Computed example of a mutant assay.
Amino acid sequence: MVKNVEDILMSYKNCTEHIIELLKREEFDFLQDAMQKRQYILDKLISNIDKKSDTREIYNKMHIKELEEETQKLMKNKAGSIKEKLKSISVNRTASSAYGNIGSSAKIFSKKI
């Protein structure tokens, strides 16, 4: 059973490393599939757990926690970066719209009385 848990954790680690690479290359289109695959592996691990201490020992030995922390940090940074870009686009669109509406407003001062 320990060997099976070790194989599952190795797959989980490889999938997490793949997600880190996707985040670094900003290939967000493939990120959803990788996250679903990782969740499937995690579900399989949870369903097969008989000895938590063995699993925890292998988990620590493979340094998976550090990978998960790096993944979380990268995801937060990329999400923040994307939010800033969207905010900038929104501000630019609002300014462009406001400048575009200047010419179409009513021209009460140009009419003769």
Results as ranks from 00 to 15, higher is better:
2 V>T: 15
3 K>H: 06
7 D>P: 03
8 I>W: 00
8 I>F: 00
8 I>P: 00
11 S>W: 02
12 Y>Q: 00
14 N>P: 02
14 N>K: 14
14 N>D: 15
17 E>M: 15
17 E>Q: 15
17 E>R: 12
18 H>T: 12
19 I>T: 06
20 I>H: 00
22 L>S: 02
23 L>K: 00
24 K>C: 04
26 E>R: 01
29 D>Y: 07
29 D>Q: 04
30 F>K: 09
31 L>P: 00
33 D>M: 08
33 D>S: 06
36 Q>G: 03
37 K>I: 13
37 K>W: 07
39 Q>I: 09
40 Y>A: 15
42 L>A: 08
43 D>L: 09
45 L>F: 09
46 I>M: 13
48 N>A: 11
49 I>G: 03
51 K>L: 05
52 K>T: 09
52 K>H: 10
56 R>F: 13
59 Y>A: 05
65 K>S: 10
69 E>Q: 14
69 E>W: 11
71 T>G: 10
72 Q>C: 04
72 Q>H: 11
73 K>F: 08
74 L>E: 13
75 M>Y: 10
75 M>N: 12
76 K>Q: 09
77 N>L: 15
79 A>K: 12
80 G>E: 07
82 I>F: 12
82 I>L: 15
84 E>A: 11
86 L>F: 01
87 K>C: 04
89 I>C: 02
89 I>R: 06
89 I>P: 00
90 S>K: 15
90 S>E: 15
93 R>E: 07
96 S>E: 11
98 A>Y: 10
98 A>T: 10
99 Y>K: 04
100 G>W: 02
103 G>M: 05
103 G>T: 01
104 S>M: 06
106 A>G: 04
107 K>V: 00
110 S>Q: 08
111 K>N: 06
112 K>G: 01
112 K>H: 06
113 I>Q: 09
